[in-house]
């Protein structure tokens, strides 16, 4: 009896060690129905677009920016990538190949499932708004990073990390439109923003039977304020990397917050 117990515990140590050693390796247990032995589970991330306290309504609703400009939003999308999760024991798990295009014009993209997440209690998340510099210099990519997704500059290689377009009567453009295509991955033009939105002491508990959901709010009003108040009369066409793009990226670094975690 003792011998069997020893073998079982030795086996489980080996199993766990395997998982720890190479968390990037997808586990075979993903589809395992036996929840007692599952070592991985799933985690859902959902992004809800807001403007201040109001849920975003595209095209028809008018919002007021920090500068007092009236805006209607027609397009809002951005990359979320390089997701790392931290457990309550401070161990971390980096989700391999985590590249997602959150497009608030297409409801199917605002929520996505991370598979093969090691079972455990997670207390923190770290992610990148945008696409890391390596993927900006590595040629033709697939999936969310497919250049055909309209988030890639053809004439000056690089991903558009965030795209916000709309109309404003205060816009300095003749057509009263504004276009923010924010990108730049190297040197002084780098707009990559690592974010760690707080779970506020909550945890996301991943198990074989439970798929927790982290509900984020993405507040567009932040794009227009702190530290840089954006004046649409002068800043209405930001479509290449440079100082203007950096100003807007500095603003949106705090646009994503955790609303709640559903376990």
């Amino acid at each position: 009896m003792k011998k069997i117990a020893l073998i079982i515990s030795a086996l489980s140590v080996i199993t766990f060690t395997n998982c720890k050693k190479d968390p990037a390796e997808p586990s075979n247990n993903n589809n395992n129905n036996n929840t007692n032995t599952a070592t991985t589970g799933k985690l859902i991330l959902t992004f809800e677009a807001m403007f201040g306290d109001s849920a975003l309504v595209l095209n028809n609703k008018t919002y007021v920016t920090a500068n007092g400009d009236s805006v209607k939003i027609s397009t809002f999308k951005y990359y979320i990538s390089n997701i790392t999760l931290t457990k309550t024991d401070n161990s971390t798990y980096t989700v391999p190949e985590s590249y997602y295009l959150v497009n608030h014009n297409t409801s199917s993209t605002v929520s996505f499932t991370l598979n093969n997440i090691p079972v455990g209690q997670y207390k923190a998340i770290k992610m990148l708004i945008g696409v890391d510099s390596a993927r900006n210099v590595s040629g033709a990519q697939i999936g969310a990073l497919d250049p055909a997704n309209g988030m890639f500059w053809s004439w000056s290689t690089g991903y558009i990390m965030l795209k916000l377009e709309g109309k404003s009567p205060q816009s300095g453009s003749a057509s009263k439109n504004f276009f923010y295509h924010i990108g730049g991955f190297s040197g002084t033009n780098n707009v990559l923003k690592w974010i760690t939105p707080s779970f506020n002491s909550a945890t996301a508990n991943v198990s074989g039977s439970m798929t927790p959901k982290i509900h984020f709010k993405t507040d567009i009003s932040e794009i227009f304020k702190t530290p840089n108040t954006i004046n649409l009369a002068t800043t209405y066409n930001v479509t290449m990397p440079g100082p203007m793009a950096k100003m807007i990226a500095d603003n949106y670094a705090d646009m994503i917050t955790v609303e709640h975690i559903h376990n």
Binding site: V137, G139, A140, P147, F152, S154, W155, S156, T157
Partner: peptide, 19 residues
């Protein structure tokens, strides 16, 4: 390109195709 704007041989054709 003449201005070096494209950094990889694989994504170069995107420019003439979509221009």
């Amino acid at each position: 390109m003449w201005d070096g704007g494209i950094n990889h041989i694989e994504v170069q054709p995107l420019a003439p195709i979509t221009d």
